[in-house]
Design a protein around this nucleic acid. Structure first.
Lengths: 350, 350
DNA sequence: ATTATTTAGGCAAAGGTTTGTTTCGTCTGG
DNA sequence: CCAGACGAAACAAACCTTTGCCTAAATAAT
């Protein structure tokens, strides 16, 4: 019909431009464009407004709208500085859900050195840049830190200092899945190599492992180390010095896993012959390693999406509570787990 | 002195609240708080304004300010949906520089299926959500697509359809670095395994390789494949079917590298004995693989930072042009490269 | 003493929307 | 013929800052 885009657009089209072109008041245009159901309007005017808006390439000014509505339609995602591909999956889930729900997201990386208390990011809300905070920070010693006050927020897979703001995955369940799987193959002596104890995810996994091993009467060694290749390397080096290795080892992150495998290889420890390995991060590359590594795949995109939903619930309704992502996690068997050497495992199909 | 934060803050403090408390006009408060040099003011009032602002916990409303100033102080970063850790480094550089320059960044993931033309993201600018666009999209067939019109933007490590908007790294230089290194060891027959030809980065690497090999009289085989583990696997599988392998192979991404190594391993091809390998992505994990992989480390954080600088230059000054990041790249020798079998290489220290 | 200049700050418009309230006709029922 | 109801749209305030211009008093220059 008419040209979609004016050849040279001097200036962005505003409501008032449409109003003048059609000959109605600006408020009428606003209501029509927003589909205000309380407004009744002559079909002819209605059409003219719509078509004029289209023709002028009208875009609502998000600033003005946000100013008036007291809602920006943006949330801020605060992430630690990591290169773990798992984060990409979480981020993806969050971004996609945010888009579905009509929010844009602002990203903020927390400096590794001198991590800020999560409350320091609420300036984004205070300055009206965002309606709420998605906190996926590394978050040490949260207990005494005090929560984020005055800004809607949720913690992602971390228990924050204030209850009712957490969106978590079932890490204990993942640990039990690992334990049950290996125990079913005959393992009795376990290790967990994981990140620093101050990280909440780590803490949850480790204490779940302790509890579960105690219940089942299994041996458990825990090693905390930096969440890097080097950390993994160092953790097994320390274990080797302390005596015989457990027969199966869970590793907290992909980065650590590389270090763990390298250290075992160098020490001449066979995987899975001498020790079986399970990674708590899943990644496609695991299937392509020299010995493909069994892993537990967690519902990370769903975690991101759930966090966004929870935050929006807080922003819009104010209601909320802790939520645990219920999407199933899966243990993906590859080649890094075998029955322990000394024991002939229960025969098993497959 | 006075309490930093009022016990219960009914409502965010505004300029007018400060003005009333001090007994001056709101415009005066604005000028003082913004340090307007044209404003002269009694020291006493000046102090009272500052201290009242602090006491009320005043935060400027970014929306109102942006509306008036016609500048949001935000930029949008559009990234493809990838899990390559290299992206994290780029993103980090960009976010950090943006923060230094007083901008916040909005993140947007481009759907993998049905990638949008980059122009489709300019709504962010049109709606005044951002001042400009950092385009790191996958960007296929850019030539005829037409540029982003009407919104300040730069392409990150991609040549966009409109000239003068590109911030790139020296991929050809990286390729030559690889070629020179291997040729220096006596290699004459090269392969490049890289992503889809429609990706601009890939295109630049591949054509640089072609040119350089032609000049130096070296053999070159090129294999395009998906930028995934599976793609890498498939690429070497295809090469194996076609006859004898080149003696050295450059691999475009970390993900592909895993597939490449797995396929070689399965085929019984020794690395670096039968074929040497160089990765164009550097990552810490490479040092921990069974045979640590030589890589070329690119200045990714600097790329991100440069892109932000270039975009801000456009936003603020309007001036700009293509920029190539000049920070040095480094070849990091590990164990995956050796002289070709048939040739006794020039003896070399280390 | 008068004019010019500076100092210290007020006034008001503008930026683009949203939304509660009004207004002005016209139609319906009585 | 009139009260009330409804349809269609206008009015205007509010959201919070910024900034060009103006004023009034005080000081300086003549």
């Amino acid at each position: 019909m008419t040209d979609d885009v004016p050849a040279v657009q001097r200036r962005a089209s505003r409501l008032i431009d449409i109003a003048e072109a059609v000959g109605v008041h600006v408020s009428t245009v606003s209501r029509v464009l927003n589909g205000d159901p309380a407004q009744s309007i002559r079909p002819e005017i209605y059409e003219r407004i719509l078509s004029t808006a289209r023709q002028q390439g009208y875009r609502p000014n998000a600033l003005a709208r946000a100013l008036k509505r007291r809602r920006t339609g943006a949330v801020a995602l605060v992430v630690p500085l990591v290169r773990n591909p798992a984060w990409a999956r979480l981020q993806r889930g969050a971004l996609q859900r945010a888009r579905e729900r009509g929010y844009v997201v602002m990203i903020m990386e927390e400096p590794t050195e001198d991590p800020k208390p999560p409350g320091d990011y609420r300036y984004l809300v205070e300055e009206s840049r965002a309606d709420g905070l998605l906190l996926a920070t590394a978050l040490r010693v949260p207990e005494h830190a005090g929560g984020v006050t005055g800004a809607p927020h949720v913690y992602i897979n971390r228990r924050g200092p204030d209850r009712g703001h957490d969106v978590v995955m079932d890490e204990p369940g993942a640990v039990r899945m690992f334990l049950d799987y290996a125990a079913g193959l005959g393992h009795r002596s376990f290790a967990m190599i994981d990140g620093p104890a101050e990280m909440d995810t780590v803490h949850r996994r480790v204490s779940a492992a302790r509890r579960a091993c105690a219940t089942r009467g299994l041996d458990l060694t825990i090693r905390h180390a930096a969440g890097t290749e080097d950390g993994g390397w160092e953790a097994v080096t320390r274990m080797l010095r302390r005596g015989p290795l457990p027969t199966v080892c869970g590793v907290g992150s992909l980065n650590q896993l590389f270090g763990v495998m390298a250290a075992l290889r160098q020490a001449g420890v066979a995987v899975p012959g001498d020790v079986s390995l399970v990674s708590f991060d899943d990644d496609e590359c695991l299937a392509y390693l020299q010995v493909p590594v069994t892993s537990i795949s967690m519902p990370l995109p769903e975690l991101g999406a759930a966090a966004v939903d929870a935050l929006i619930a807080r922003i819009e309704g104010g209601q909320a509570g802790d939520v645990m992502v219920r999407e199933p996690m899966r243990l993906i068997p590859r080649d890094s787990v075998a029955p322990p050497r000394a024991v002939s495992a229960h025969p098993r199909g497959q």
